[in-house]
């Protein structure tokens, strides 16, 4: 089952663009710490981190080019982790 192997060779240019984007997002996350955003500063920081993770997952880890099944698996794991965190925080926030 599922033995057909066709590995997509991602171009050097794409990797370079992603690398530069990651560096830019890192600089951005440092930069936003200088601005007083109040309570939403943590949301901004986490959003930048989430975008960076998405780039790494989809391009460096090939999820974008692979079967949808693998993306679903990874999404399932993230969903599980989110639910576990939410349920844990029921004890602390409410």
């Amino acid at each position: 089952m599922e033995n057909s192997e066709e590995h997509k060779i991602v171009s050097f240019k794409t990797y370079l663009i992603i690398l530069v984007s990651l560096i830019c997002f890192t600089l951005l996350s440092v930069f936003v710490t200088k601005i007083d955003l109040g309570n939403i500063s943590i949301i901004v920081a986490l959003s930048i981190a989430a975008i960076k993770s998405l780039l790494v997952f989809s391009v460096f880890m090939h999820l974008y080019y692979d079967k949808k099944m693998y993306s679903i698996m990874v999404a399932g794991v993230i969903l599980l982790m989110t639910l576990v965190l939410i349920i844990t925080f029921l004890d602390y926030g409410f």
Binding site: L80, L83, V84, I87, L90, D91, Y92, F94
Partner: peptide, 20 residues
């Protein structure tokens, strides 16, 4: 995955957690 708290009913969790 989501039922672990039933080991901790007397540990001093919040009421919301207890019900959940």
């Amino acid at each position: 995955y989501f039922v672990w708290g039933h080991h901790m009913f007397t540990a001093g969790m919040s009421e919301t957690s207890l019900f959940a």
